[in-house]
Amino acid sequence: MRFIKPLCILLLTYTFTAGYLFEVPALPILNETIRALYLHVPMWFTMIFLLLLSSFHSYRYVSNGDILHDMKSYNFAHIGVYFGILGLLTGMVWARYTWGTFWTNDPKLNGSAIGLLIYFGYFILRSSIDDESKRGKISSVYNVFSFSMLIPLIFILPRLTDSLHPGNGGNPGFNVYDMNSQLRLVFYPAVVGFILLGLWISEIRLKMLKLNQK
């Protein structure tokens, strides 16, 4: 993938300049912290994207048994969870100065924490099995399961109750009113840029894993 690196550098440079300089809506309580949207939310988008790729490769491994798919799925899960941890940490700092505490009992916070714990379970499961094909099969099945757990935990359950996160607790069709066109101008490039950064890092780590295998 030739275009990943230049496009990633371009989009993230844009994010890190326009993100600070462009005008944002002036809202009470949020103030300038609204700009954290450009950094905090793309972490989660990147995590979801990488974990989706991971479970896709797990599915491929189960169906055709190529060990490369197992390696890829482990690799994507690893980088994806890193982005998830970054999302949690940045969200905690943001919450401290807008909601008042580092951690609230918001369903989205608890859901994403549980989701990450499920993935920690995946890594422990992997490292506890020595036999290569057995490890691949068991952890692949677990991985597909954990991604399908993540969707209700992050996207469905927070909508069923009240959540402090905008766009949750109620009809997602009204999300249009939560973000205006000024924010979108930086937000979407930021999401793509961070996803490409995640792909870049996974590419490097996959090369390393392949070297270790030989």
């Binding site: 690196k5 550098i9 993230l12 890190f16 890092i201 490097i204 090369k207 390393m208 070297l211």
Partner: peptide, 18 residues
């Protein structure tokens, strides 16, 4: 931007080394 570009450079160098 300094931090971002040094991170990019670092990633690039690691990839070259591998």
């Amino acid at each position: 931007l300094i931090i971002l570009f040094s991170l990019f450079l670092y990633l690039y160098r690691i990839e070259k080394k591998i």
